[in-house]
Design a binder for these strands. Structure first.
Lengths: 347, 347
DNA sequence: CTGAAAGCGCTTACAG
DNA sequence: CTGAAAGCGCTTACAG
């Protein structure tokens, strides 16, 4: 089946190609009747614009704003996203896409709002955002809706918006993977300590899902029969953490493994190192500090969610949407990755 | 810096764009002097063709022949390559690339040769091949060279050719990863059995590298102090394998883990299941039968090499080379992937 | 409200 | 051996 061109539509509708172009792009100045006719014919012939020709004539640069937390040495997770974005941009060549990074300080609402203002002033063709601050994100999405700017979520999903697509972590499955790794290495009768180490504001939804997955594994497949002890530590100050853990280990001599449900795994690793414990330690996220302890052999496994690929996909999806106005798949979970000393060599 | 067009070159060289085009494409019929001049100007201005415009006028379909072993239910490895290829083709849209699959029966030289003939008759724009049969592959590459057809290797690398690029497994690292997983789960004093299960013709180079990596891990980082017992079993008949293993286990009551250096891991898994052994079992490749035993909990980990991504990259690289005649990176190893019951859910 | 023309950068005949 | 023209499918002024 040959490609349908606007010329073909024009012929069939007895109008000029200029007119067809006008209705296809909603540029107005077309009689309602003509409009209807062209539209129905285009649909009937299943017209798909030739984006090569489009690119050649418009020489359009697609402008995408990316609203994510600022990465840093201790936040490699968000530092990797720009890398994935650059990769996508490169692969999209020779089509031109320009990325405007709007990085906000994690948990700083004011900063987040300021960045959203920047985007609204900038009026990009599309937005990729991590809607970590739920309330603010919803507000922002409404404004994008009214400007007809499409947006894709990464990392976190929230309802009540018209997001084109979501790409993120399968936190539940991540929990199961962590569980399976501990279960494999730990004698069946040993106890497991689950540490939830997160400040108030952190995205606790992910952590909950991870823990649910973790526990579900032992309900349906694990061989471990030990206790699963959960502890919440809402601060990451080492001294507080140490104290808390000390008291737990005093009451419980049978703990053989620790799971940390957040990226702060290194804080617990530090404790394990200081107390010279022989426990298994599994956590999340490939951050610099975590990797340090992974290499020392104190953290045994890290569960990763391939942040680079996450944002790479997001850019490609958004581009696809911008050029074709259709999207193959709405939501997608990233596969879970198991990382240990030997697979980390690339760092 | 603005894009340089053939028009710019033409102006500077005081010729028409037609002439520039002729020299750029070596279509002859150009005075040597003119040729030199145009060439030097193009170089000086760092001319890069606009492949969008190119695509629009030529409406060229890039034809790529893919010469790999035929996959099958028990050879998911080679079955996944076409999937990666399709993915690349899809992502390359709206550029047209047409894949001609030339699948040969594994270890069948005659069949391989026949397929190479097919390709040589077909004269594609480029070739992606797995040069598993070394001698035959070298011959074939020479013929491709003389036809000026570029080719990329996947899976296996061989010298003495002009391949544009190689994308494949890091077998040594794969061995190290397998070792680290066993080391983590196995008491330090237990022995480890290394099974090399491969027919004569199989690609033993990979297996050797894997074993080297495996042993190297215990030399520089492993905590395991047990014996490493190596056994070669050149056939995969279950009865022969069973017999051989029986005699080994009789002589050695301290074996706590088995590594299988090839994709035939399921044969050993079968044995482990029958004898109801409690040993750790680690092997390579996500094949259907292997996954079966993984799900049963008999195989604990499989080491994968992301075949889909391998061939996806190959297609993109080759396309890049065909359109721009330059290539970013020559050889690339795929990252090693750790697979267990919980990460395999997608199958 | 509608159509005809020019142009994006390149390639492909064709004329000389 | 070389140049001028037409065309790929689309968009962008411009004229009516």
């Amino acid at each position: 089946m040959k490609q349908v061109r606007i010329k073909d539509i024009a012929q069939k509708a007895n109008v000029s190609i200029g007119t067809v172009d006008r209705v296809l792009h909603n540029r107005g100045e077309v009689a309602p009747k003509t409009r209807e006719k062209v539209l129905s014919i285009a649909k009937e012939m299943n017209y798909q614009p030739n984006i090569v020709a489009q690119a050649l004539t418009t020489r359009k640069t697609y402008r995408i704003s990316v609203l994510i937390p600022r990465g840093g040495n201790d936040n490699i997770y968000w530092l990797s996203h720009p890398k994935g974005i650059e990769k996508a941009v490169k692969e999209l060549h020779p089509f031109l896409v320009e990325i405007d990074y709007c990085l906000f300080e994690l948990h700083n609402e004011a900063d987040f709002l300021k960045r959203t203002e920047d985007i609204l002033n900038n009026l990009p063709d599309g937005v990729i955002l991590a809607p970590i601050l739920k309330k603010e994100a919803i507000q922002f999405c409404k404004k994008l809706d009214s400007q007809k700017i499409p947006y894709i979520f990464i990392d976190t999903f929230i309802d009540q918006t018209n997001c084109v697509s979501f790409i993120g972590e399968d936190a539940f499955q991540g929990g199961r993977v962590a569980a399976s790794l501990i279960d494999y290495g730990l004698p069946a009768e040993k106890d497991i300590l689950i540490v939830n180490l997160a400040k108030d504001l952190e995205n606790t939804q992910h952590l909950n899902r991870r823990n649910q997955g973790f526990l579900s594994y032992f309900l349906d497949s694990g061989k471990n029969t030990g206790m699963k002890i959960t502890v919440e530590i809402p601060v990451t100050e080492q001294s507080v953490v140490d104290q808390k853990l000390d008291s737990i280990f005093q009451q419980n001599a049978n703990i053989g493994a620790i799971l940390v449900s957040s990226a702060k795994t290194h804080v617990i690793a530090r404790y394990v190192e200081k107390r010279d414990l022989k426990t298994i330690l599994v956590g999340y996220e490939v951050t610099k500090k975590n990797v340090e302890y992974l290499k020392k052999g104190i953290i045994h496994f890290l569960i990763g969610q391939k942040p680079m690929e996450q944002s790479e996909k997001a850019v490609k999806r958004l581009f696809e949407f911008l050029t074709t106005h259709s999207i193959s798949l709405e939501h997608e979970f990233q596969p879970v990755e198991i990382i240990n000393t030997e697979t980390i060599t690339m760092f």
